[in-house]
Design a protein around this nucleic acid. Structure first.
Lengths: 279, 279
DNA sequence: CCAATAGTGTCTGTGAGACAGTATAAG
DNA sequence: CTTATACTGTCTCACAGACACTATTGG
């Protein structure tokens, strides 16, 4: 431990701190990157069919080196004098979405030595969940990418997303960690469009949400105040990447929702009741 | 974002990197702290009774300021030029236990601004699980503390631990986070003996293991090669902090264990078969 | 024999999976 | 009437919780 090299004897903590030379320690920069997730729907051509739901991620186009022209997660440097990592993340969230009061959780600290070509930068990633309906302003350079494909085969995950103009696809190999049966190291197999290690960060974020969706109430952070159970079920299905059975879903979700008297009509089929989240 | 102040136009990434002045960014120091958990047993006075099992944490007595004389988790500064946080953690683990090949997982990044009185230090904490039987050498200044009491009442957790000579006890308040039903901020209520925010780190580590114990195989990292089902059940009980029913436990654990022909005898009661972990 | 743990049999209730069926809007 | 979704009833099976029971050792 570098701190151990200090030999001089001090009699009080104050005395020690006064004499403390913090430059003895090698320092580095930290950033936060945020996986901002939401749910979009793609209009169906058939007037009867409901819109197809997809998860979407907010990305920013880089206009400076390194990785100029590539897409990356919203993020920024930590100001060590003034803010915590979470405050830093909320500052960036505010900048990118103009919203406060957003669900935010620390995801993981990414620290591969060569993850940034400039210098050693350690990044603590966060996941944020928002309901897209709350968004008003469009931030420059930022764009929502809908995840149109997410496939896992032989421990290789392939993700394809698009903002309507551009397509980003990448694949990541999941390597089982030693001494575990359920933890994986992620390794990029293909990634042409995303800067840094943000492909790995995005996958970590999606998996975190997927793992928590069944035993927490996080989905409701992505829902508007009133929603139908069909819509809610679709969000679960998109996150879990599989179909659910209606009766089972309704049984489980009944504890977490309240039926209102409002209805959603004009959909070309039987109208449905609107529900609210019940804590 | 501090990086945005760079105005000069570059035509290639190489050119940019060459000119890049990393001192523009405010830097800070990082450390890793490791919650090394294991299971101890306290000899029973009654020859018939089995030894009582407890979780234990490895702590180090600080011999320099700050917090001179207090106990803290094994940890150390990250060398930003040469190592990742996990490599740093393994280096410290090796130093403190003289073991490699230990179960290690990233826990959380702690970054309260005033968590270290010297300067801004962000610490990424790890949890390590070991089987105490693998330990041979005794490291100076380090000591195992058995958790003799862990009680949660009205969202206040009280933990008491001892190394046989000294008693450390502290209490932490769990405050429900906004927009969640299951996530808490930890706040120290009482803590006289532990340095930094290591009381919070220890509780986070214990809760992480508790949350994972039912859907992963992590316990086996704390077990010797051969063990009885009674011993294994006690370890689960200690981690979950509650009694389990024998038949139910045996049903579930049967999938993860193999019965051997070996037996454990001389215990003052019916001998039991020894089992091994089955992946 | 006693005390303590090892280990098993079985009933019951809960709840998810599965499938079939009824209800109701727009066009 | 058709099509699509909304919503419900009910059977089955897996499995955890609970309790009672037998087995086996050292002293």
């Amino acid at each position: 431990m570098i701190g151990d090299v200090i030999m001089k004897e001090y009699n009080s903590e104050e005395e020690f701190l006064k004499d403390y030379d913090s430059s003895k320690f090698e320092k580095l920069s930290m950033t936060t990157d945020i996986v901002i997730l939401s749910v979009s729907s793609k209009d169906s051509s058939n007037y009867r069919k409901t819109d197809k739901k997809m998860m979407s991620v907010l990305l920013v186009k880089r206009d400076t080196f390194p990785y100029k022209g590539k897409w990356c997660l919203p993020g920024g440097f930590l100001n060590p004098k003034e803010e915590t990592l979470e405050e830093c993340a909320r500052r960036i969230l505010k900048r990118e979405t103009n919203l406060s009061n957003i669900y935010l959780e620390q995801l993981y600290t990414f620290d591969r030595i060569d993850r940034d070509p400039r210098m050693r930068i350690v990044s603590t990633a966060y996941v944020a969940l928002i309901d897209k309906n709350r968004l008003t302003d469009q931030v420059e350079n930022a764009s929502w990418f809908d995840i149109i494909e997410l496939e896992e085969k032989n421990n290789v995950v392939k993700i394809t997303m698009t903002n309507g103009e551009e397509i980003i696809d990448f694949s990541i190999k999941k390597i089982l960690r030693e001494k575990t049966t359920d933890r994986y190291d992620f390794k990029t197999e293909e990634n042409e469009k995303l800067a840094f290690d943000h492909d790995l960060v995005i996958l970590s974020g999606i998996e975190r949400i997927r793992n928590k969706v069944n035993y927490t109430d996080i989905v409701f952070n992505m829902m508007p105040e009133y929603f139908t159970l069909g819509e809610l079920q679709q969000v679960y299905e998109v996150i879990l990447n599989k179909k659910l059975l209606d009766p089972a879903f309704r049984r489980i979700i009944a504890k977490k929702t309240v039926k209102t008297t409002k209805m959603k009509t004009g959909e070309g089929h039987r109208p449905s009741y609107l529900f609210k989240y019940k804590r």
